[in-house]
Protein backbone atom coordinates (compact mmCIF):
# COMPACT_ATOMS: atom_id res chain seq x y z
CA UNK A 1 0.00 0.00 0.00
CA UNK A 2 1.17 3.47 -0.84
CA UNK A 3 2.19 5.63 2.08
CA UNK A 4 0.62 9.01 2.66
CA UNK A 5 3.43 11.03 1.15
CA UNK A 6 3.29 8.86 -1.96
CA UNK A 7 -0.42 9.43 -2.35
CA UNK A 8 0.01 13.15 -1.81
CA UNK A 9 2.83 13.36 -4.32
CA UNK A 10 0.63 11.81 -7.00
CA UNK A 11 -2.34 14.09 -6.42
CA UNK A 12 -2.62 16.82 -9.11
CA UNK A 13 -2.85 19.50 -6.42
CA UNK A 14 0.66 18.66 -5.16
CA UNK A 15 2.18 18.55 -8.65
CA UNK A 16 5.84 19.66 -8.70
CA UNK A 17 5.83 20.54 -5.01
CA UNK A 18 9.21 20.63 -3.28
CA UNK A 19 9.93 17.30 -1.47
CA UNK A 20 10.69 19.14 1.73
CA UNK A 21 7.30 20.84 1.70
CA UNK A 22 5.64 17.55 0.86
CA UNK A 23 7.17 16.03 3.94
CA UNK A 24 5.93 18.91 6.11
CA UNK A 25 2.42 18.68 4.63
CA UNK A 26 2.32 14.92 5.12
CA UNK A 27 2.60 15.64 8.84
CA UNK A 28 -0.82 17.30 8.69
CA UNK A 29 -2.43 14.60 6.52
CA UNK A 30 -4.68 11.65 7.26
CA UNK A 31 -6.44 9.10 5.11
CA UNK A 32 -10.25 9.29 5.17
CA UNK A 33 -13.12 7.29 3.66
CA UNK A 34 -16.76 8.37 3.53
CA UNK A 35 -19.74 6.19 2.75
CA UNK A 36 -22.40 7.12 0.21
CA UNK A 37 -24.57 9.96 1.57
CA UNK A 38 -22.25 10.57 4.52
CA UNK A 39 -21.90 14.25 5.37
CA UNK A 40 -18.32 15.57 5.31
CA UNK A 41 -19.21 18.94 6.75
CA UNK A 42 -22.16 21.27 7.17
CA UNK A 43 -22.75 24.94 6.44
CA UNK A 44 -21.52 27.03 9.38
CA UNK A 45 -19.33 24.25 10.85
CA UNK A 46 -15.79 25.08 11.74
CA UNK A 47 -13.59 24.51 8.68
CA UNK A 48 -10.86 22.45 10.23
CA UNK A 49 -9.80 20.49 7.19
CA UNK A 50 -9.60 20.40 3.46
CA UNK A 51 -9.66 17.34 1.25
CA UNK A 52 -7.73 16.00 -1.70
CA UNK A 53 -10.25 13.72 -3.37
CA UNK A 54 -8.80 10.44 -4.59
CA UNK A 55 -11.95 8.67 -5.71
CA UNK A 56 -15.69 9.17 -5.58
CA UNK A 57 -17.76 12.29 -5.88
CA UNK A 58 -18.70 14.92 -3.29
CA UNK A 59 -21.72 17.23 -3.68
CA UNK A 60 -21.66 20.79 -2.42
CA UNK A 61 -25.06 22.17 -1.52
CA UNK A 62 -26.50 25.40 -0.25
CA UNK A 63 -29.38 25.18 2.16
CA UNK A 64 -31.80 27.30 0.16
CA UNK A 65 -34.46 27.13 2.89
CA UNK A 66 -37.74 27.51 0.99
CA UNK A 67 -35.80 27.22 -2.28
CA UNK A 68 -34.78 23.70 -1.42
CA UNK A 69 -31.30 22.23 -1.32
CA UNK A 70 -29.39 23.73 -4.22
CA UNK A 71 -26.58 21.58 -5.45
CA UNK A 72 -24.03 23.91 -6.96
CA UNK A 73 -20.99 21.79 -7.60
CA UNK A 74 -19.70 18.26 -7.47
CA UNK A 75 -16.06 17.52 -6.80
CA UNK A 76 -14.38 14.37 -7.97
CA UNK A 77 -11.03 12.58 -8.19
CA UNK A 78 -7.99 14.82 -8.44
CA UNK A 79 -9.91 17.83 -7.16
CA UNK A 80 -9.71 19.84 -3.97
CA UNK A 81 -12.62 20.15 -1.59
CA UNK A 82 -12.70 23.13 0.74
CA UNK A 83 -10.81 26.38 0.96
CA UNK A 84 -12.48 27.90 4.02
CA UNK A 85 -9.64 26.60 6.26
CA UNK A 86 -7.39 29.29 4.78
CA UNK A 87 -9.70 32.27 5.32
CA UNK A 88 -10.72 33.54 8.75
CA UNK A 89 -13.12 32.85 10.49
CA UNK A 90 -12.65 29.33 9.05
CA UNK A 91 -16.28 28.34 8.60
CA UNK A 92 -17.81 26.22 5.86
CA UNK A 93 -20.11 28.02 3.39
CA UNK A 94 -21.67 24.85 2.02
CA UNK A 95 -22.69 21.43 3.02
CA UNK A 96 -20.65 18.59 1.55
CA UNK A 97 -21.76 15.00 1.31
CA UNK A 98 -20.53 11.93 -0.48
CA UNK A 99 -22.54 10.90 -3.54
CA UNK A 100 -20.74 7.58 -3.59
CA UNK A 101 -17.94 6.09 -1.53
CA UNK A 102 -15.27 8.78 -1.30
CA UNK A 103 -11.61 8.23 -0.55
CA UNK A 104 -9.61 11.31 0.26
CA UNK A 105 -6.64 12.73 2.09
CA UNK A 106 -7.73 15.16 4.76
CA UNK A 107 -5.33 17.93 5.65
CA UNK A 108 -5.61 19.57 9.02
CA UNK A 109 -6.15 23.27 8.49
CA UNK A 110 -4.66 24.55 11.73
CA UNK A 111 -1.62 22.32 11.37
CA UNK A 112 -1.00 23.55 7.85
CA UNK A 113 -1.67 27.19 8.76
CA UNK A 114 0.96 27.00 11.49
CA UNK A 115 3.49 25.53 9.10
CA UNK A 116 2.71 28.28 6.60
CA UNK A 117 3.16 30.96 9.25
CA UNK A 118 6.53 29.47 10.17
CA UNK A 119 7.66 29.18 6.56
CA UNK A 120 6.17 31.97 4.41
CA UNK A 121 7.63 30.33 1.28
CA UNK A 122 5.45 27.29 1.91
CA UNK A 123 2.60 29.66 2.75
CA UNK A 124 3.00 31.47 -0.57
CA UNK A 125 3.16 28.18 -2.45
CA UNK A 126 -0.08 27.02 -0.80
CA UNK A 127 -1.78 30.36 -1.47
CA UNK A 128 -0.81 30.26 -5.14
CA UNK A 129 -2.29 26.79 -5.49
CA UNK A 130 -5.47 27.80 -3.70
CA UNK A 131 -5.75 31.07 -5.62
CA UNK A 132 -5.82 28.95 -8.77
CA UNK A 133 -8.67 26.86 -7.35
CA UNK A 134 -10.55 29.94 -6.18
CA UNK A 135 -10.19 31.47 -9.64
CA UNK A 136 -11.56 28.31 -11.25
CA UNK A 137 -14.50 28.18 -8.86
CA UNK A 138 -15.25 31.87 -9.38
CA UNK A 139 -15.15 31.50 -13.16
CA UNK A 140 -17.41 28.46 -13.04
CA UNK A 141 -19.84 30.26 -10.77
CA UNK A 142 -19.96 33.22 -13.15
CA UNK A 143 -20.67 30.90 -16.01
CA UNK A 144 -23.44 29.21 -14.05
CA UNK A 145 -24.83 32.68 -13.32
CA UNK A 146 -24.98 33.38 -17.07
CA UNK A 147 -27.39 30.48 -17.28
CA UNK A 148 -26.37 29.95 -20.89
CA UNK A 149 -28.88 27.18 -21.57
CA UNK A 150 -31.77 29.20 -20.18
CA UNK A 151 -35.17 28.55 -21.70
CA UNK A 152 -36.45 31.53 -23.65
Amino acid sequence: MEDLSGILRNHPFMKDLDENYLKQITGCASNVVYQEDEVLFKEGDKAEKFYLIRSGKVALEINGRDKGNLRILTIGPGQILGWSWIVSPYKWHFEAHALEEVRAIALDGECLRNKCEDDPKLGYEMLKRFAHILEQRLQSTRMQLLDVFKRV
Binding site: K57, A59, L70, R71, I72, L73, T74, G76, S140
Partner: peptide, 9 residues
Protein backbone atom coordinates in the same frame (compact mmCIF):
# COMPACT_ATOMS: atom_id res chain seq x y z
CA UNK B 1 -31.70 19.11 -6.58
CA UNK B 2 -30.55 16.29 -4.33
CA UNK B 3 -31.90 13.43 -6.40
CA UNK B 4 -29.29 13.72 -9.16
CA UNK B 5 -26.24 11.50 -8.67
CA UNK B 6 -24.10 12.87 -11.50
CA UNK B 7 -21.78 15.85 -11.87
CA UNK B 8 -22.89 19.39 -11.07
CA UNK B 9 -20.98 22.39 -12.40
Amino acid sequence: DSTWRGHVG
